[in-house]
Amino acid sequence: MKSKEHPAPASTPGLAQIKREREAHQEHEMELLVGYLLLTGVILSILLVLTGMTWEYVRSGSLHLNYLIAGMNFFQFLVDDVRAILTPALIGPRAFVNLGIAALLFTPYIRVVSSMLFFAVAEKNWKYTAFTAFVGLVLTYSLFLR
């Protein structure tokens, strides 16, 4: 993609104008995508955590849910948790709280990955595709740590 610092020659003001407008339009689409992703992630996460906490409080009269995520990385944690939600015997307050926390952690992660796809597919901006891919790779690696 050409830099905005070097507008097209004056002989084609129409084309330059169209290019600028298209860029502005794409930028706004990306803002909406990122904005709504973040909003959905946070609301979903809070709702799931609240559901788990309320369930625990109704069941036991306390909010004590002490347990640690130990010896597993984030992706194992997520897989275990989705399994718990899908298995009737394992559904409970903890499964909801865990899923809420997982949704929260996934929110910035998905934001980075979808920005990368947007830069690659819609904008064909390879510079920023590479930058976001780097961020995505580092995050993926660190979330696989155990």
């Binding site: 996460s45 906490m53 849910l65 640690l68 010896g71």
Partner: peptide, 17 residues
């Protein structure tokens, strides 16, 4: 912090909300 086992979901939950 998760990999090191420092994230306790039971304590994190009320704090996030």
């Amino acid at each position: 912090y998760i990999a090191a086992g420092y994230v306790d979901p039971g304590l994190v939950a009320p704090v996030i909300v």
